[in-house]
Simulated assay, not measured.
Amino acid sequence: MELDKVEKLVEKYFDATTTVAEEESLRDYFSREDIPAHLEQYAPMFQYFAVAKEERYTKKLALTKTPKGSFRTLYKWVSVAAVAVFTIGVYFYNSTPKPVTLAEEFTPEEIASAQEALALLAINFNKGTEQLYHLEEFQKNTNKFLTKE
């Protein structure tokens, strides 16, 4: 094979545009002993491809079946149970009712009587706080006499 033709084929090989027949001719060329010095770097690669093409795996592969109670079966049943629980939850879901205002729940008479009762409570509460003010004044005066300031 001519040297310039081999160089062009190597270029085409690295550009990934060679045919199977051209790759075979390159393997044949680089399997020879008299390779030019500038192409010797490619020889081990093409020699490896020629040897690797003939390799075969001869050991037997042990193909085992998975047991019936495997993880895959468990996974299927767990997913079925999850869907069932979700469906039951959606069926029995009670949405929260719309909040009811006081005007909708009680009559105007009931609201008025409640306001009246709260007003009486406020009046009595204020009377109690007035008594506390007098008690506070009494406490201050007592402390003056006891400590004699």
Rank of each mutant, 00 (worst) to 15 (best):
K76Q: 08
V85R: 05
V78W: 15
F71H: 08
A52D: 11
R27A: 00
Y93K: 00
L39H: 15
Y91W: 07
S25Q: 08
T96E: 06
E33H: 15
I88R: 09
V20H: 01
Y93M: 02
Y91R: 04
K59H: 15
E55Y: 14
V85C: 03
A81L: 11
I88T: 09
E109Q: 00
Y75V: 03
T73I: 02
F106H: 03
S25M: 05
F71R: 13
T73G: 03
Q41W: 10
I88E: 05
L63W: 11
Y29R: 06
W77M: 09
P44D: 01
L61E: 03
G89Y: 04
P108K: 08
Y48F: 15
F30H: 03
Y91C: 07
R72A: 09
A82N: 04
K65C: 13
Y75L: 09
A37S: 11
K76L: 04
T64M: 04
E23H: 15
V20W: 01
T73P: 00
A62Y: 05
N94F: 07
K76S: 06
V100A: 11
E105W: 12
P108Q: 08
R27G: 02
A21P: 05
K76R: 07
T58C: 04
L74E: 03
P99H: 12
A37C: 14
S70E: 00
E33Y: 13
T66Y: 11
P67C: 01
L26D: 00
D28Q: 14
A43W: 11
G89Q: 06
K68C: 05
V78K: 13
S31K: 09
